[in-house]
């Protein structure tokens, strides 16, 4: 018997808050396929097959009076009673949830009773949905994702409130993750902007960070952008987990690319990434070989007021 491995007393606070805040109605499936009391088990079975469901509530008017589950169908097949009306074999011992209950109650119900689904009633005792443990898991995962996003954002925001962050920020970059591409560079740009640096310097750093980030997305097996913010310069280091560059000199040539057609169709892979980084950097180093991690470092010095003027 599966249970939902979330303890409603001792789980992390974030999870506890979620399972009390989220209501059954937020996670339930509100498209419910029902049958009447005189529907035959054969028809109920057909409904299950067509809709890919494993339990059908039996209604008398608007009131739920029972439920036919896959188990009931299997037993009916065994007995040869498939043409009998549902009302005769349905489970009448109904455990229902209310749509306004927090999902913590649903979780404890799933763990306490052996049922795989619960009908959900509104306050007028009308059937408004069904909830399975899968619905709970999915609903929780969606919320946990949002919550983690929020917490990550808090970590990123911490320390830059004074607009003068010094130290290292690290950003994990996943291979082929075009969805998140640019996030690290935008963060780096925002941190530099908060320091009121010359816009040209900020732009140079943004270009270097973005090209290195996109390179990790397109070419690497995944890696990291580390950005060290110092008094007079920013050091952007990109380190990946391979597969390495065969010919570094060739990779530094403008227009040379190993990107495939669909990456180029997105507007990337023009063979300008590394040359762009080098062009905007005050100091640029790259080391790589086949099968080894590639490390690229770009240092951008901040112009003093006199230089900038």
């Amino acid at each position: 018997m599966q249970s939902i491995p979330i303890n409603t007393y001792t789980s992390p606070t974030v999870i506890l808050e979620l399972i009390y805040k989220l209501k059954v109605k937020h996670v339930m499936c509100d498209q419910v396929y029902t049958a009447a009391t005189d529907t035959s088990l054969r028809e109920v079975k057909e409904l299950m097959r067509e809709r890919s469901i494993t339990g059908v509530p039996i209604l008398e008017g608007k009131r739920i009076v029972g439920i036919i589950s896959m188990d009931d169908i299997i037993q009916a097949l065994d007995r040869g009673s498939m043409d009998e009306p549902a009302v005769r074999y349905m489970s009448r011992n109904l455990i229902v949830l209310e749509d306004d209950m927090p999902i913590s109650i649903a979780i404890s119900y799933f763990d306490r009773f052996r049922y795989r689904r619960f009908p959900v009633l509104n306050k007028h005792k009308e059937l408004v949905g069904m909830v399975t443990s899968r619905d709970i898991t999915t609903g929780l995962l969606v919320e946990i994702n949002k919550e983690i996003d929020r917490l990550e954002q808090l970590t990123l925001d911490a320390g830059k409130g004074d607009g003068d962050f010094h130290g290292t920020r690290r950003y994990l970059i996943r291979s082929n993750d075009f969805e998140k591409a640019g996030r690290a560079s935008m963060e780096i740009k925002k941190i530099l902007k908060a320091r009121n640096l010359d816009p040209k310097t900020i732009r140079r750093a943004a270009i270097a960070a973005y090209e290195l980030e996109i390179n990790l997305v397109i070419h690497s097996l995944g890696g990291e952008i580390a950005c060290l913010f110092e008094d007079d310069q920013v050091v952007i280091t990109s380190t990946d987990r391979g597969p390495g560059i065969q010919d570094v000199d060739l990779a530094m040539e403008e227009g040379y690319t190993t990107a495939n057609a669909w990456i180029r169709s997105l507007g990337f892979g023009a063979g300008m990434g590394l040359p762009n980084v080098k062009q905007v950097s005050d100091q640029f180093t790259i080391s790589s070989s086949t099968g080894a991690p590639t490390v690229v470092q770009s240092i951008i010095r901040f112009m003093t007021d006199q230089e900038g003027a």
Partner: peptide
């Protein structure tokens, strides 16, 4: 070509393109 834009587009300008995805915004 987004890296062309990145490296050469002037500030405060309008990007004229067919790249209709969010990397163009970045």
């Amino acid at each position: 070509l987004l890296s062309d834009v990145m490296g050469n587009a002037p500030e405060d300008s309008i990007l004229i393109t067919v790249q209709a995805h969010k990397n163009a915004v970045a």
